[in-house]
């Protein structure tokens, strides 16, 4: 499976009647098994880009090609759980076919066992984010879209969840698109990093990371970090 993004532009008309350019031409593609990371300043149009890719916003110029049968798993910036359904029901509603074994496994990994019967209003933000992750994983997605999934989690948990995302990505041929502010998340999870400019967003640098995810040692990571720093300074 393959995701092809060819956006030639997106404008937005404000209430005052002025047109604003939100996205400049943006082209990239993603293969199964690949993790693409979008990194850019706040308000540069990342969320708009995601909405277009997900098919929620059709008012743009260009084409998005993804197999129509591709199952999508999404972790929104806010958890977007149904407050009137329990944690378990929230997951099951998105993934009705999931087996009890799979579900238990998922809840165990994300440490949600004790919260199955709770309502989202009774959860902390960190827990709600984990439920959102569980829901996205539960659908066994072909395209996994993660919009700042690890924001506002403590380092230990973020690290563990990062590991879980890596495991999932390795276990199935899934195309993953990660939006993040954190360079650390990007270099630990990404295969290709797309650095975006301020609004209207365009890709200023595309950086592939050659070392397979599982083999990235701390030393290798810090080397990548330094290289990226130099590269980004250069492009500015």
């Amino acid at each position: 499976m393959r995701l092809e993004v060819e956006i030639s532009g997106k404008t937005f008309r404000s209430v005052a009647g002025e047109t604003h350019e939100v996205l400049a031409p943006v082209n990239f593609s993603l293969q199964s098994g690949e993790v693409g990371v979008l990194i850019g300043p706040s308000g540069c149009g990342k969320s708009t880009m995601l909405r277009i890719i997900l098919g929620l916003d059709r008012d743009f110029h260009g084409t998005i090609a993804r197999p129509p049968e591709a199952r999508i798993g999404m972790v929104f910036q806010e958890p977007r759980l149904l407050p009137w359904r329990s944690v378990e029901q929230n997951v099951r509603l998105a993934a009705p076919g999931i087996s009890e074994t799979k579900l238990s496994e998922l809840f165990r990994i994300l440490e949600l066992d004790a919260h199955r019967g709770h309502f989202p209003g009774e959860l902390s933000l960190g827990l709600a984010r984990r439920v959102a992750l569980a829901r996205a994983f539960a659908v066994e997605p072909d395209l996994l879209v993660l919009d700042e999934p690890l924001a506002s989690l403590d380092d230990a948990l973020a690290g563990r969840l990062r590991g879980e995302i890596a495991t999932l990505v390795a276990s199935r041929p899934v195309m993953t698109l990660l939006v993040t502010h954190s360079l650390d998340d990007a270099i630990r999870l990404g295969d290709r990093l797309f650095f975006l400019s301020p609004r209207p967003a365009r890709i200023v640098q595309e950086v592939p990371i050659a070392i397979p995810r599982a083999e990235r040692s701390e030393a290798a990571l810090s080397r990548i970090r330094t290289e990226l720093g130099a590269l980004l300074l250069e492009s500015k």
């Binding site: 997900l54 929620l56 199952r71 999508i72 798993g73 999404m74 806010e78 977007r80 659908v139």
Partner: peptide, 23 residues
């Protein structure tokens, strides 16, 4: 935003109506 969630997760219309809209 919940409508969007239902769309992204490809919930069938009736299920989305019953669990997302009706409550």
């Amino acid at each position: 935003s919940l409508d969007e969630m239902a769309t992204v997760f490809a919930m069938p219309r009736w299920r989305a109506f019953r669990h997302v809209v009706l409550p």
